[in-house]
Amino acid sequence: MHIVVCAKMVPDTTQVSIDPVTNTLVREGVPFITNPFDDHAIEEALRIKDAYGARVTVLSMGPAPAETVLRKAIALGADAGLLLSDRAFGGSDTLATSKVLSVAIAKLSDQERVDLIVCGKQTIDGDTAQVGPGIATRLGYAQVTLVDKVLDVDLDTRRITVRAKFDNRHQVVEARLPAVITVVREINTPRYPTVPRRLYAEEVQIQVWTNEMLKLDPNTIGLKGSPTWVKRIFAPEREKGEIVMGLGKEKEKAVRLIMQKLADWKVLGP
């Protein structure tokens, strides 16, 4: 079995803040990490590998430094990493991204048939959850998103059974292989790398494919191939309410004010 995991290098958006004066993003010193949802995708692929035997290829699209995401996955047990890197891919929205990824996966599958694609549910910088379904649609593969449990992989009948977690229900779905699944964080707890594996991952050759390899029409990828574009970025302006100091001696006054407001707003009930 050949499993492809899609992983992205993202800025750690939990460490981004807004400058209160200029209302712009403060990006100084924000580290780049593997998208946290993709950590769980990598782990799940490795668990399937442990249970059923598989070769795991981790795929990423991004600038050259994104290869650290691949090395990290290899340190955990992935067999190979492949980086898709070309300025022609830059500025891609989800439609163009799924195009580049799916063409690369099809090409990988020509070399060694791909049976399963595992993606994180979404990224923390884009938060769209659109690339996984985009890949499934382009490749014509079965699609199950929001998977919180892989129940069975049957390589004889070429079927995978998973449990998907929608907002208010679980749905147990059997899908034909090849399939695309996207996973939620509850699915597993990622492992730690071993020391020898980490040393190996530092040295290993990471394959890089540019658009010369994929031969995509530059008008269908990157900025030109992206139908959506950001017109404006802004920090919303809001009308401030009443702000009072409630530190030290002023505490009692502040609490009295809260009680007064609760009564005015009629939230205390009869």
Binding site: S98, T128, P133, T137, K165, P227
Partner: peptide, 23 residues
């Protein structure tokens, strides 16, 4: 933009080769 809606929307937009803005 529920779990189901986002499961559906990405595929529809990709098939139609159109833009989709999430959430």
């Amino acid at each position: 933009a529920t779990g189901l809606g986002r499961d559906l929307a990405g595929g529809v937009a990709t098939h139609l080769e159109t833009g989709l803005t999430a959430d």
